[in-house]
Design a protein around this nucleic acid. Sequence first.
DNA 1: CATCGGCGAGAACACTGTTCTCGCTCGATG
DNA 2: CATCGAGCGAGAACAGTGTTCTCGCCGATG
Lengths: 257, 257
Amino acid sequence: MPTAPRSLTARERARVEFTRDIKEAARRQLAEHGAAGISLRGVARDIGLVSASALYRYFPGRDALLTALIADSYSSLGDAAEAAAAPDAEVQDGAPDPGDHLGRWVAVCHAVRAWALAHPHEYALIHGSPVPGYTAPAETTEPGTRVPFLIGGLFARAAQDGAYRPLDRLPVPADAHRALLPLLGRLPDGIPDHLVVAGLTAWTYLFGAVSFEVFGHRANIVDDQRAYFDHEVRRLGVLLGLGPVAADGGRPSGQGA
Amino acid sequence: MPTAPRSLTARERARVEFTRDIKEAARRQLAEHGAAGISLRGVARDIGLVSASALYRYFPGRDALLTALIADSYSSLGDAAEAAAAPDAEVQDGAPDPGDHLGRWVAVCHAVRAWALAHPHEYALIHGSPVPGYTAPAETTEPGTRVPFLIGGLFARAAQDGAYRPLDRLPVPADAHRALLPLLGRLPDGIPDHLVVAGLTAWTYLFGAVSFEVFGHRANIVDDQRAYFDHEVRRLGVLLGLGPVAADGGRPSGQGA
DNA sequence: CATCGGCGAGAACACTGTTCTCGCTCGATG
DNA sequence: CATCGAGCGAGAACAGTGTTCTCGCCGATG
């Protein structure tokens, strides 16, 4: 544990400030030219440095700078998603309703999608091809778990409320259960397999859909991407058991009644 | 319009052969060092050229070479997927059964996953962050449609056989229907909306799951990735209506009986 | 006040993609 | 078969890149 914040020295304050400036300039370059367009010399120029060599006092290299951007992007995305899931967040045209698990799921999906569309290059950084090496640096894994845990919590709350009713009865096979042991070990005891599978499935689908749209795989296929996205994630929520079980397919008649 | 294939001249034959050699060398570099590690000078060295400038006689630039690799990768993936879906393909431990739509869907999924794991950098090239510009070059779009069309055909055949029974009854809203018009226009008439949505959903999920695994987002989360993948895609197939509707959740009792 | 550690500048090295020019050579053609 | 020239590879050059190293300088610290 780092020492208590006993008032940083002036040098240290200047250092963290400069580190922040560097990351900001890099993020600007990222937003404009993409990850491949981030050049240390360009970053140095942006913040008034003549030579890029000074940057090495703050980051051991370009990859480390990228890693820092990845971690920040995960945090930014996590913030956006959690804000959408907060108990007092506005569910789409309607008052907040703590029992509307499907609506909250859809809201989180829209938040993730909106963040990705607003920051396509940052999204590509965290969910595109891993650029630097092949293994994600350790400091990026923790912020990267926020969205999946948020989604998992959504399903857990629905189950607590007795509102979780998946539309199939397919049991989780023994080998799939064993495959999930690493995750189950980090979760509170007593969570049934199928609930974990539901969370993973929802998480996987959400980022599949967002990636397809951001990376252009749906151009010329879907026109009004937002409308289609809304339908697909809502339907997935219903299939996975978050939804109103109404067989007529409509949303609940009354507003949260 | 290019002349009929009236026996290429020796020069032309040598040219296509050399073009193939260049792409092979580039693909080797891609497999080893990733897309960012493909250098024209390295490719030139690999095929016995002293200078990289000669490559510009065959490709207008690095991006064009990458584009060619993308198109080839799509074709390679399409081949693998279509082979798995072929009528005489072995369905997982069992004789081919033309009525086993769920088994065929799962087989296609495993084929896509296996190809991606065997060619991770090529997979990253086609389903990771778009590297060169932002819009996919036209010549890559056609081979890129083979897998989604294959999956769509799977659902269409299941519907023809009367075996398509989605587990929900959520109607496709009017705005989502309108969003699908670009795609519906390129499909035979009379295909119901929900069938198209099912195909898109299956396609989206498949590549979400494969991307998560290939890009390492499931490390430390899922152990036996193949077992979990098998379960998740099988379950999605059931939810989307390809599956045995048996409420006990098991596979059909007899083998294709 | 003296000193020493952290800092930025700048040169240097090994790369990269791309362009241009210059001979040469081999294949198409008369 | 002989000749001509189109197509080709080599090589230099330019503008970049990440990274390393050294050299002063300046200010915070003892």
